[in-house]
Structures are given as C-alpha cells and as structure tokens.
Design a protein around this nucleic acid. Structure first.
Lengths: 361, 361
DNA sequence: AGAACTTTTTAAAGCGCTTTAAGTGCTGGT
DNA sequence: ACCAGCACTTAAAGCGCTTTAAAAAGTTCT
C-alpha cells in the first residue's frame, strides 16, 4: 500500500525520476530533492520538510521514517531554495581582509557566535585586487541580512548609505558621526594599560612611537599622553613620529639612541613597529629588556615568536565578535533602529620584552 | 498608455506594492524585485531579466529604458532566486584555513581567476573550532558546483567519497591514490633549488632540518637528498629531525653548534623553523650569513621582515589558484572526468640570509 | 453512534528569478 | 491583399523549498 502510493506520487511529477538513472559521477544538477525522500517514504514534501527542520507537527513514527530515509539517501537540503521560500536568509555578510591575522581570529569567533543564534556567515574578502565595494556587493547579492564589516576604510557617508540597504556593523574602527553600529576596542585605554604596566615597573622615561594620523593612531597617542600625565610623568612625554611598519620602528629607535637622553622604555603603535625597534636596539647592542623595555600593540602572531616575546595588547577578538553578532541580531530580530557603539576594553599581554626599569644609580 | 499598463500589471500581483510604502529603513524582506522594475517601465519580467543579464533579444530602446529604471530604483538581483532558476549556481566552494597567510594569497588569486571564467566563490573556513567537514558541508549547502580545498587534511578515502558529490580539487597537498584533482607545487624541486643556490655559493656542508613525517615533509626531505647527491655532496647529507615550529629550529640549531663539525649552511623545513635557527645562531653569536647561511621555505610574511630577510622558496600562489580554477572548469564545463595532478615548479627567493660560503683557509 | 475535538497530513500557493514556446506587430515580396 | 519572415515581447511553467489553510484520521465523551 505504502509503496504503491509512493510510486504514484513520484509519477505525478512531470520530471523523470532522476534517482533511478543517476550517473555514478554526479554533475551539477544531480542532487536529490525533498520530493525524492518524500516519495521514498510515501509522504508529502510538506511532511518531510517539517521533519527535517524539526518543526512541530509530524508524529514520532513519521519523524523516524523520514530521518532514516533522508540519511539513507544522503539527502542534503538546498539552502538556496530553502532561503528563498522562507522570507529570511538568516545570513550575516562578513567582509574581511583575508590577509589580516586579527580578522582571521574575528571570523573564527563570529562563526561560533552566529551559529549560537541560528545565523550563517557569508564571507567576502577585500584584497589588493578586490575592493570593499565589490566585497560588499557580493555579500548583498547573497542576500545577507546584515553586514559586518571588519576594519572598513570607506568614508562614513558611504557606510551610512549602505546601512540603508542592510544594517551595517563596523568592527574595529571608530567612525565619527555615522548612523550605524560600531564595535571596537578602546585604543586609548589599551595604550594606557601599557603605560601603567611600565610605570609599575619603575619606568619614568617612556617614549611613544606614533602610527601616523589615522583614527586609531590618534586614539592610541591620546591614550599614551593621558596615561603619562596620570602617572605624573607629563614632562617625560615624548612622541616620535612613525607608522605601522617595521622600518618606522627602526628609524624611531635610532633617533632615540642618537639622542643624549635615551628612554628606558619604548611603546610602539603596533607590533610590527615594535619589532623594528627591537631590531634597531639589537643592532646597537642594547639589551632588551635589561636596558630598555619595549611594547607593541595588537598581539600579532609575530609578537608571540619566542625570539621577540613582545609585551603587547590584545584586542579581544572573541568579545568583539560576540558583540558584532549581538548587534546584528538586535537589528534584525529585536527591532532596534538606533545606532549603538560598543567600546571594549583591551587586554594587556605581558611577555618578555618588558622588565623592571634599570636602577639609575 | 504606458503608465496605465504598468499600473494594471502591478495590481495583478496579489502582493501589495511594497515599493510605495517601504519604510525608510529597510528590513530583511524589503528588496525590490524584478517585477518592480518591470512595472516601472511597463514591461514583463521576462524582458527585464533578459536585459539585465545582457541576453540577446530586447531592442536597444527597451534595453536603455530598463537599465535606466534599474539604476534609478537601485535594483539588485537576488542571486539565490536567480541561481535556483537557472540550473547552475556557477559557484566554486573554497575551503580555507583562515589563519594561513598562504591561503590568503591563494584566495586572492582564486577570486580573479574565477571571475575571469564567470564563476563566483563561496568561502568557508576551517578553524580550531570548526572542522573540515563542517566547512565542506557549508560549501555544499550553498550548492557549490565544485570544491576547491586548500590544504585538506582529510584522508584520501574521505576526499574520494566527497568527490562523488561534487568535483574536488585538492590544493597544496600530494594525495596518494585518490581519484581526484590535485594542484600542488613540487616540494622536492623547491628544496632542490635552495641546495643548488647554496652549492653555487660554494657551500658543501649543507644541513637540513626536517619537518616531521607528513607528506610534504617527506617530499622536501627527498628533494634535499637528491639535490645533495646531484652536486656530489652525498657524504655531506645531514638531516636533523624537526617540525614546523620555531622551537624545532632552535633545538636543531643548537645540536649543530654543539657538534664538532658545524655546517656552513642550514636549510629548514619552513620559514618558522628557519627563524628558530636564526634565533639560536644569533644567541650563540654566529653571524648570518657571514659564517652560516640559512634558508627556509614558504615565503611567509615572516621571511620578508627586514630583521630576518630570509632566503626561501615561494609556492606561486597565483599559478596554483589559476590551475585550481581551470581544473574545476574542465570538470564542470568541459566534461573531464579523469583526475589530473598538476605539479608546479616553486620559485627561489633569495634574500639576505644566504651568502658566499666562508673561505676555509 | 455521533458530536466535538485534537492530532497528523497534505494540497496548493508562493519565494524571485530564468527560460521556452507562443504571441504580436512589422517588413517586404508577390 | 495576403503571407512569409523577422524582430521583439511575454505568458506560463518551473527551480526546490516553506507555509498555511484545510482535509483526513484519531480520540474522547455523551
């Protein structure tokens, strides 16, 4: 009875039953459909759909039979069709710079965070040959419901415009006057923690190597100044110009060495730059951390190398990822419409490049 | 006339015309449909579809009007719906380890290569918390037509099984006896080039630090042995055990130093390991490259740092990416069914860590 | 046994797009 | 006039799934 019913039903579809004569090696169009498994158990596609999504309704018996059949057939639902049918895609579009190790970490945590709330991730990368716009277009074409942009460089106006197509969550960059969600870490506080750490070790002459004039660089520099003053070291404030490169670090370090009054500690804009400092000091025969302490920022993979063992600041990728996903969910599922900025405290990572200030006899 | 027609047509759909009362801030379900732009110009969706895909048929006048309307409305096609309707997705699923800089480069080139042949990329990453299976499942759920797996670690049997669902192209790893496409670089030849380079600089005592017992490590070690023999340096062959880490490099380097007869050149399994060697040598006061030359493998970002300036071997990401996409296209569009292995020659990158062998007086 | 529910199951209408067969007008030839 | 032939256009049938309203099958209670 059951079987006969199944046969009839199959014949009702006007497409030939592909299941029967499927070639061993399947081409692009050879996948099983919901209907195939429905036919197998002699039920409607509706029931099968219900079971497969764990929706309430089907009886236990039906449930078992369907699951068994689906497993035997190796059925795999077509996400596209499914998403087209429900009105939602439950897809979060993530733009990353695939060359950035920090973004890599973020993506890792975004995955887990998104999964927890039943969302999927669509990844699109911006590279030297593929700009932000293209990446975002792709994300939109996949019908991402929200856009999580890691370190976007587009101007605030562009982002605001984009936000009208889908909620935008900018991660890692402070964005002035844009009407959108921002998740970032407190760069000033991060540098502040480094200065606290060094001051606690007895350092007084703590120099800073800046990172240029970007938003982030400005914040970090401000954090340095504020922390120095907080420790009553206002007169020791010393900012050298630099950028995010190793070369800048080397240059700045040489400047310091050539000076009459070298610092006992150097804080660099980021890890790359700090490594330049290390290189220059080592070349000059200055011992780190015995004579000079050095600190970076970002907790790059670099800073973990035993030959550097750099004290640095970690940006808390996991927390940022969680907040970004939470922000997206609030927008999509909880109807929040007013933009929100989340600023997270970074975390000091003490390694071997900082130590007690040399005793000044 | 035109306008009235448009009105009628719009009313024919039983969904309320969303275009009219769309909220300023669009929710997940607020996008324009093909029908909206069709209504705007008073044409059928079929014509609009034709125009938008640049298909032949529509007249120039129609073409212009449609394009104009689409632009004005800011229409963006729904990729999902579109892909569901054609039977193809033209999507290549790419599994990457998002933490790998080399994969990052590959992805970059995969993008351009895929675009050139009209394919799109779906990215899915494997991480510490997300295994290969999950990543591949995602790719399949998006209905990728082929799977490009970067550095897959799954056993050959698993990959072969997977290949029956969609053509699999394994990149970067030699896979014995699996019935699938492989694109990789010739690891043995790469190490051979390093040895050639060093031998050409007059080195005779060239030691090698192995990378364990993986497929790649085996190939590289074989390449070292073969090259040494080719240069008549068979009796100088010296393989130290190691792995892919900095620590292994340090350990091996200390071994060499403690030995009575240290080598004048050290070739490491990879860059990380080579950097461990550099660290150990520097600590021991041995000058690189004046006393000892050091070389790595992979052309990591690390090796480019000026403080290392490591001679190494680049794997030619671009070429590998091109070949991987080409392989996928052959499978999908040209009906190739027999597996093919593409082995590309790597490229020596000479930097500052290798130099003329010290004259032995 | 039949009413009044409750639990399961399903038919059918889409989702937004592509595609094909069938139109609809126009030429121009006879 | 009439028809063949051409250039466009479009109605309609899907793609594989979800969802809803309604039918079918079971229960329980008088």
């Amino acid at each position: 009875m059951d079987e006969a019913g199944a046969e009839d039903r199959r014949r009702m579809t006007d497409r030939p039953a592909r299941t029967a004569n499927r070639p061993a090696r399947t081409g692009p169009d050879s996948r099983l459909r919901l209907e195939d498994v429905a036919a197998r158990v002699g039920l409607s596609t509706a029931s099968v759909s219900l079971v497969l999504r764990g929706a309430p309704g089907p009886s236990e018996r039906t449930r078992q039979r369907v699951l068994k059949a689906a497993a035997e057939l190796g059925y795999q639902p077509d996400r596209n069709a499914s998403l087209l049918a429900r009105r939602r895609t439950r897809l979060l579009g993530v733009m990353v710079d695939i060359h950035s190790p920090f973004h890599a970490e973020l993506v890792e945590h975004l995955h887990t965070a998104a999964e927890a709330v039943g969302y999927d991730l669509a990844l699109s990368t911006q590279t030297r040959t593929r700009d932000e716009d293209t990446a975002v277009e792709t994300l939109l074409a996949f019908r991402s419901e929200a856009l999580i942009l890691l370190g976007p460089t587009a101007p605030a106006t562009t982002l605001t415009a984009l936000d009208r197509k889908a909620p935008v969550i900018a991660v890692g960059r402070r964005i002035a006057d844009a009407d959108l969600d921002v998740v970032r870490s407190a760069d000033d506080a991060g540098v502040g923690q480094i200065v606290d750490h060094l001051a606690g070790l007895g350092h007084r002459s703590i120099a800073y190597i800046g990172g240029g004039k970007g938003v982030i660089a400005t914040d970090r520099r401000r954090g340095y100044r504020a922390a120095m003053r907080r420790h009553g070291l206002g007169e020791h404030v010393r900012v050298l110009s630099g950028d995010h490169t190793e070369q800048a670090g080397e240059r700045a370090a040489r400047h310091l060495l050539d000076d009459g009054q070298p610092a006992t500690a150097v804080v660099a804009f980021n890890d790359q730059c700090a490594i330049g400092v290390l290189a220059a000091l080592s070349r000059a025969g200055v011992a780190v951390p015995d004579e000079v302490s050095v600190a970076g920022y970002d907790d790059d993979a670099l800073s973990r190398l035993s030959c550097f063992s750099l004290t640095t600041v970690s940006q808390g990728a996991e927390e940022q990822a969680r907040c970004a996903v939470a922000a997206a969910v609030e927008r999509l599922d909880e109807g929040r419409t007013t933009p929100r900025e989340v600023v997270l405290p970074p975390r000091l990572v003490v390694r071997g490049s900082t130590a007690q200030a040399p005793s000044t006899p």
